[in-house]
Design a protein around this nucleic acid. Structure first.
Length: 265
DNA sequence: AGGCAGGTCGGTA
DNA sequence: TACCGACCTGCC
């Protein structure tokens, strides 16, 4: 049965669809044993997660019991340690936005996973991003290859071209090379202001303000980072949104899901 | 068929 | 500093 956790205001499928993560793979309903389930990769770790009502089940990647010592990592990853009732209450979201995005949480992903994902994502679309990420994770044994490994793999033209990254390929190659001997300062012991961390990330090739904000929000825990993509720019041009100084990133994610969903309708 | 997609870069005023 | 076109590719 695995490790069970109560998860209210939590919707696994809504999170999967919300465009913040490209390292999950849906599982057949039968194989998860639950209504809905995913094989989740983060850094060099993997787990299976299923949701039934307000209960979350955590298993290891093969469907066996998750080691007890791994539980804290995944609880943080799924933001189960955050009080979303209080956070959302303070954001005063329009009811329409809240309803369209109910159950979404901002995951605490691995920083390298998010850097790779969103460097690839620029001026692209979700199916294509997912295709490239699936191919990368297959090459990494189910996880995103670490920088040195990725740099080596990308030097193989056959492998690199199959990713269909277009003009983003040299960006990813440059990023992988730089990151073999570099990590964001905020991973160290010294706290780093958001603005400083953004500038640092933007020194990487192919990383501009949008990608840097995604890495800060999704991969480095800066919940005040607000990625401004085409959808959010549309929202800003229509509504008069003031981004919350503490949780603007969560607020942004709710508006993002709302804006995308209404366009599909 | 052709615009657009969770942008960034280099050149120009 | 602010704006503009180019850019690989494949969805819609």
């Amino acid at each position: 049965m695995g490790i069970l956790r109560e998860a209210h205001d939590f919707d696994l499928d809504a999170i999967f669809r919300s465009g913040q993560v490209f390292t999950w793979r849906p599982l057949e309903p039968a194989s998860s044993g639950w209504g809905t389930g995913y094989l989740v990769s983060s850094g060099q770790r993997r787990c299976r997660v299923g949701q039934s009502g307000g209960t979350l089940a955590l298993l290891d990647a093969d469907g066996g019991a998750l080691p007890q010592e791994d539980a804290p990592y995944w609880e943080h990853y799924f933001a189960l340690d955050a009080d979303y009732g209080a956070i959302l209450g303070g954001l005063s979201l329009p009811h329409e936005v809240w309803a369209a995005s109910a159950g979404i949480r901002v995951l605490a992903q691995d920083w390298w996973d998010t850097l790779v994902s969103f460097a690839i994502s620029q001026n692209s679309n979700i199916p294509r991003i997912q295709h490239a990420m699936d191919a990368l994770m297959a090459a990494g044994g189910g996880c995103v290859p670490q920088p040195a490994q990725l740099a080596r793999q990308l030097s193989d033209d056959g492998f690199a071209n199959a990713l269909r990254l277009g003009y983003r390929l040299p960006y990813l190659q440059g990023i992988a090379q730089r990151c073999t001997a570099w990590r964001p300062s905020s991973l160290g012991s010294r706290p780093v202001a958001l603005e400083e961390q953004l500038l640092e990330l933007q020194s990487l090739p192919g990383v501009g303000p949008k990608v840097a904000n995604c890495v800060c929000l999704f991969g480095l825990g800066y919940l005040d980072a607000v990625p401004r993509d085409t959808w959010i720019k549309k929202v800003e041009s229509r509504e008069n949104v003031a981004w919350d100084p503490t949780y603007g990133g969560i607020q942004q994610q709710y508006y993002f899901a709302w804006a995308r969903e209404r366009s599909h309708a």
